[in-house]
């Protein structure tokens, strides 16, 4: 019987080791993006707008044109890229500090304008790159280096549910939340990402997918326990699912 290769590196993903910590989900998210760029046939038209965070080096891992945006500004930079090159496939990839804190205005307004771009949002409940400080998505009671006794509702406010906010905006066409903690959820994540990308390909507007992701290093957990934490602590607060899907209705207006 001849051997059959059933799993390989997507063409759009460059063959090099990543700088990510063991158990980090950025690599999984990168791969999903790479697979879809290939499957949807948009890799040669793709322009990545990289953000500031652990994933800033995404441009070293994906074989596509890229520009590096200042912290939080990726949706604004992507707006400019799309204005300049309407025929290209433009997407951002942002962490929760980047998107939900310093870049809140940029993502909301890009979504609300119905920019024909896709946003991949990696929520790991901390500022990973700078050493695990509190993020707008840090859960109540979660300890970080800037809330060492745990995030407190009275003092720091409640964690922000971005997908629900995006879904509430007129310009958003697709908004969904998935998780990368197990194979089943990863497959669901890919389906959502495909839809978000499809919005742009069909010129139907803003596609947004939040990916609940592990940061074992800053959570001070091993990778297996980090996956478990997503299930027991994150998903109950950040429910998975589609929060808006206007793709079949011809897009948002």
């Amino acid at each position: 019987m001849s051997e059959q290769l059933v799993f390989d590196r997507p063409q759009s993903v460059i063959d090099r080791p990543t700088h990510y910590c063991p158990g980090c989900h950025h690599g999984v998210a990168h791969r999903l993006v790479g697979e879809l760029l290939d499957e949807l046939g948009v890799a040669e038209d793709a322009i990545l707008v990289a953000s500031i965070g652990c994933s800033v080096f995404l441009y070293n891992y994906l074989n596509v044109d890229a520009v590096e945006a200042p912290h939080g500004r990726a949706p604004a930079v992507a707006t400019g890229v799309k204005a300049a090159r309407k025929d290209k496939f433009v997407f951002t990839y942002q962490g929760d500090g980047d998107l939900a804190s310093i870049g809140m205005a940029e993502v909301l307004h890009a979504a609300n304008r119905g920019e024909n771009i896709a946003v991949v949002f990696v929520n790991n409940t901390v500022y990973g790159m700078t050493g695990g400080q509190m993020a707008p998505t840090t859960l109540i009671g979660q300890r970080t280096t800037t809330c060492p006794s745990g995030r407190c509702l009275e003092h720091e406010g409640a964690p922000i549910r971005m997908t629900e906010i995006i879904a509430g905006l007129g310009g958003a066409t697709f908004a969904a939340r998935a998780s990368l903690n197990n194979v089943k959820n990863i497959r669901q994540a890919k389906k959502y990402l495909r839809k978000a990308f499809q919005c742009q390909i069909e010129k139907k507007g803003f596609g947004f997918v939040e990916l609940l992701s592990a940061c074992p290093t800053n959570w001070k957990l091993n990778p297996v326990d980090a996956n478990e934490r997503i299930k027991t602590e994150m998903i109950p607060y950040f429910p998975l699912g589609v929060f808006k899907d206007a793709l079949d209705e011809g897009g948002a207006c």
């Binding site: 604004a76 930079v77 890229v81 307004h109």
Partner: peptide, 20 residues
């Protein structure tokens, strides 16, 4: 594009400029 702020407007400029 009427941007949401000058911060955003300048970053849009960065995006368009990067495209030549």
């Amino acid at each position: 594009v009427q941007a949401e702020s000058e911060v955003a407007a300048a970053n849009m400029l960065l995006g368009a400029g990067a495209c030549g």
